[in-house]
Design a protein around this nucleic acid. Structure first.
Lengths: 340, 340
DNA sequence: CCACCCTATGTAAACGATTACATATCGCAA
DNA sequence: TTGCGATATGTAATCGTTTACATAGGGTGG
């Protein structure tokens, strides 16, 4: 592997000059520039990134932690992250948790040990160790959340997300406005604020409409197709089956629709279904899914920008940056059946 | 940031001893070990990965290049890659191409400039520059393909994949066995061997059954939902619409089903649809999709293993490593309508 | 013509770990 | 006791860049 020394030798200059030629050509005289350029071409020299990063103390790497890349919702977020990353000269290292909780310390350690310059969390790390709090004023390592798919302990962490409470209220209220009274809520991990907030919104809307909530209507499905299908089977067989189901994400909603149809019922004639996220499959399932759209790319972009600022040492403060959501009405929702 | 020097000083030993303690504790006497451990705990020392990697000349990073993480088929492959990566101590840096061709040189450069130890290509790089050939005996940089979603020039590159020709033949033959005579084929980028092989398999089966192929039946849709929908509209409105459509991936098949139903036709009563990949949505679309299943995780694992070997300097040879596929029959296929 | 400054380049010291080689220490056999 | 080998530790060079500082050369103003 050819090093800067050999290039310098061949060009008859010092290594410093070669380095300057690469990083700041303006400092180098035209005449010298040509000689160095020639030497580089001849040797096929490429600067050793390991050495450079080591010397500069920067990895130019950002780790994105998410439950599963297969979830199409994350695609949009990643798109936004990548755009900014490319613009700012970062590479993205992806770390899947596969829905296992991971130790938060693992990520702070990645920063301390210079494996990465910053971290974006789209998944739940395990709760903090005792005594660690995020509210205090001491400088945090450059770690930021998106979508708040995390444990409540991290509530004050820098993050970018929609107002999940308001969005869930809106979705539920829409079902209520159609005439539904028995509305179920189906969610993922109960320990995440994401889920908790959406449940809060749901309960808020039900309460406002003075509608009762049957305990059997609120069920954990795991945010997956399969989990949703299990949960739906239970709901359908219960003594007072709901006429509408509000799912904490589209993946569950798609699984729910499938299972409802498999049971010989129709969507939306027998049961209305509302999803959350507006993934691209939402439009092509049968019937097309009513759902809450999140500006995923924008979330990704703003998260990455904020992280870059943190890496550069700026104070980005605590708390969430909120982006707008939107209710998308398609054909998976309708008035409840007459008999209800 | 605390360095090994400070730990050594605090423990009253040399930096060499601290280094040995970290990398090879057995070499260090029990007594010393305790002192060093104490110093590490007290200082909160974490070895600087940048320095270590630089010294060792290894990044412990593998780049995976793919068109889009949003495609659920890649999820399985990534799963397999990650499993092995974790086992072998690598981090995965993901690079999306968003269906743009990227310069192959970019990846060899990443290796030369020590940004990564190896590359896995799941997406099409642009054709080689003139004069570069992959058949020659000179040692290749550690780059490997999966799924052969690439330009034909790379045909001899080390890769892991199913036998696309045989799989496509099988799928087409299955349609023929149901009685279909007018079978369309819908594919993505025509420049990839993946598509070419599947088309070859399709043509082979048609030829064997002595069935003609209408040119309008073979159409490029871009491997996306939207592309497939456009292509279906054309097919339906043609003078001799097909009774079955074989799609080069499930994403297209799902788009096709949706568009067929939107046009007021039924699947499979009017038109049968076959996909490719068996992504997890294949089972929950309506009707559930008949498709070719690929052992995605296994592909990912074997790819990563082979790459690790290449990185370690072993000769992994040229050419493809083949894994088995399987036709999954669901309800999107049936006999053609009577009138045909 | 001198003094000064500015520009282009060279010299060499970092960065923080690893490791070849040198040295010290200890145990044990002769 | 001496000598040898094995074991544990220290010394210092090294990886390839960057960069603070030194220096040389060239131009300008007085």
């Amino acid at each position: 592997m050819v090093s800067i020394k050999e290039v310098a030798q061949l060009a008859g200059v010092s290594t410093a000059t070669v380095s300057r030629f690469i990083n700041n050509p303006d400092q180098v005289k035209q005449h010298t520039r040509e000689r160095v350029q020639k030497a580089i071409s001849e040797t096929g020299y490429a600067p050793n990134t390991l050495a450079r990063n080591f010397r500069r103390g920067k990895t130019h790497i950002v780790v994105v932690v998410l439950p599963s890349v297969g979830d199409p919702f994350f695609e949009g977020i990643m798109e936004g992250i990548w755009r900014v990353a490319r613009e700012q000269g970062y590479s993205i290292l992806v770390r899947e948790t596969l829905f296992n909780t991971v130790d938060f310390d693992e990520f702070t350690h990645m920063i301390f040990s210079k494996q990465a310059d910053g971290i974006i969390l789209l998944a739940s790390p395990s709760p903090f160790r005792e005594g660690v709090s995020i509210d205090d004023e001491r400088k945090q390592p450059p770690i930021i959340l998106s979508c708040e798919n995390v444990t409540p302990e991290l509530k004050n962490f820098p993050s970018v997300r929609i107002d999940n409470v308001a969005a869930a209220t809106e979705a539920t209220t829409y079902l209520i406005s159609l005439g539904h009274k028995r509305i179920a809520f189906m969610f993922g991990k109960s320990s995440s604020t994401l889920t908790a907030d959406r449940e809060t919104g749901y309960r808020k809307a039900m309460k406002k409409a003075k509608l009762p909530i049957d305990d059997t209507w609120v069920s954990e499905g795991g945010l997956t197709l399969e989990g949703a299908r299990r949960a739906v089977r239970k709901l359908i067989n219960s003594s007072a089956p709901p006429t509408a189901i509000f799912c904490a994400n589209d993946e569950m909603a798609i699984g729910a629709i499938h299972e409802i149809k498999a049971a010989g019922l129709s969507v939306p004639e027998d049961i209305s279904v509302v999803g959350f996220d507006d993934i691209r499959y939402a439009e092509v399932v049968d019937p097309p899914l009513t759902t809450i759209a999140q500006p995923a790319e924008e979330i990704g972009e703003r998260t990455m920008y904020r992280l870059c600022k943190a890496i550069d040492g700026s104070d980005i403060g605590l708390g969430a940056e909120t982006v707008p959501h939107k209710l998308i009405v398609r054909r998976s929702t309708a008035k409840p059946p007459q008999s209800s």
